[in-house]
Write a protein that binds this DNA or RNA. Structure first.
Ligand code: MN
Ligand code: MN
Ligand code: ZN
Ligand code: ZN
Lengths: 144, 144
DNA sequence: TCTGAAATTGACAGTCATTTTCATTTAGCC
DNA sequence: GGCTAAATGAAAATGACTGTCAATTTCAGA
């Protein structure tokens, strides 16, 4: 659950006092993410907020979701059609099982996969590695 | 190296004789892919062909690359920005180790990972699953 | 070699997610 | 309350990709 939006020191340098502000829009986006369980696109979250009465400009929803994912507060993955979808996740390293039809998401862990990725990277002389791993399919509900 | 573009039986039914034809455009796209070693976008391949003198319409390059990847003759992955990039790969199922600096790509296989993906999918009742797995890092050349 | 039906091409317009612009509003510090 | 940088959001722009369709090309059969 995410209650605070964007965490960063309010002051970086006495000369220019920069700060991230708490707004009703950011609170609304964070609340929507907390209520929604599955990966959702920016447009879906925007629509959700509109239906809910907490209308937020589409541009602001885009900006807020991007800031949240940059801060590591939400997970973002690319759907198979290339669209970005967001979800509040656990903080530990994990991957996802995502339903192509309804978006239903299950977090999965695979220590063996992590070790494999590290060893194959090392064997090929790669450093500073990171990886993406997502499984798409039809959840039991959507499998008919 | 890809020399033939699109393989399919020329006749599926005597009523409607369907067939995939060999054209200079498809040959040119296949040749470009054979010459290029790393993942490239449709626009990059279109530009490459133009510079090379074998200009092919952008729409045709899009169609040809999509047909090639649908046929399994080339690999396609989504870049971080959601753009599709293509590359000639081996025919067996594999994944990639991609240098985020120079684009250098190494094909890797991980039977254990495949089994893990299948079992975790089945355990959660997912069907029709597919997965994406890419490792990004710095190749030995780019690691300083 | 000739012919014609079906496949292909490509210029152009359309779609749609995402970004940019910028005038207006707002949060937070005094 | 006043001030100012941060934030908002409506509207326009961007850019990857798709749809359309008239013109062109392939190739199987005559
Ligand atoms: Mn992992
Ligand atoms: Mn695999
Ligand atoms: Zn589902
Ligand atoms: Zn490199």
């Amino acid at each position: 659950m995410v209650t605070t939006v964007m965490v960063r020191s309010a002051k970086v340098h006495p000369m220019s006092s920069l700060g991230v502000r708490s707004t009703k829009q950011r609170t609304a986006v964070a609340a929507a993410l907390a209520e929604l369980d599955d990966f959702r696109s920016t447009q879906e979250i925007h629509e959700y907020l509109k239906d809910r009465g907490d209308s937020v400009g589409l541009t602001t929803v885009y900006r807020t979701l991007q800031a949240l994912s940059a801060a590591g507060d939400v997970d973002v993955i690319l759907r198979e059609d290339g669209e970005s979808v967001y979800r509040v996740c656990s903080t530990s390293h994990h991957h996802h099982l995502v339903c192509r039809q309804c978006g239903h998401t299950v977090e999965v862990e695979g220590p063996a996969v992590e070790r494999w990725a590290d060893s194959v990277s090392a064997a090929n002389g790669f450093t500073s590695v990171s990886h993406t791993l997502e499984i798409f399919g039809l959840c039991s509900n959507c499998s008919h």
